[in-house]
Amino acid sequence: MTPDNDNKTLIALAEKFGESVIESKIDRGDAVAVIAPGAVHDIIAWLRDQHDFKMLADLCGVDYLPREPRFEVVYQLHAMGRGERIRLRVQLGGKAPEVATISDLYPVADWLERETWDMFGIVFDGHPNLKRILMYEPFEGHPLRRDYPIERRQPLIGPRN
């Protein structure tokens, strides 16, 4: 979709990837694009190599229950040379949220994707070591999902409920 603004990166992105860019806009001064799950790896590789977005500032998950598609993965990219930022959002369905890893493009994504997996249960296809990073291995479920019971405690030692 062609953006209704004059952000050069968003225009180039829409020209290059066409249908894979579902929405693009300027949200409170930041360039934001909603992209199709299948195109994540290609788009980010292209932004990194052609548009100098050499830094992955953050990668995180969001749970929008009860909306469907329920989950979002948000990528914040930063072009160090000119101080430009772009935010990419990918919407994923609730049944088996899965998206391609970008840990081969940005080594920092390794731990960020593990955190997103740990907290939201979003699978990053192709990740070399997708296991829990904050919670302990015996922990069941993903605590930042909105349907994780707020009272549920899973201590390693001490009283359980």
Binding site: M135, P143, Y148, I150, R152, R153, P155, I157
Partner: peptide
């Protein structure tokens, strides 16, 4: 008061 924190060390 959340999933991550021990609710009083006297439980341990």
């Amino acid at each position: 008061d959340n999933y991550a924190t021990v609710q009083g060390i006297d439980t341990i």
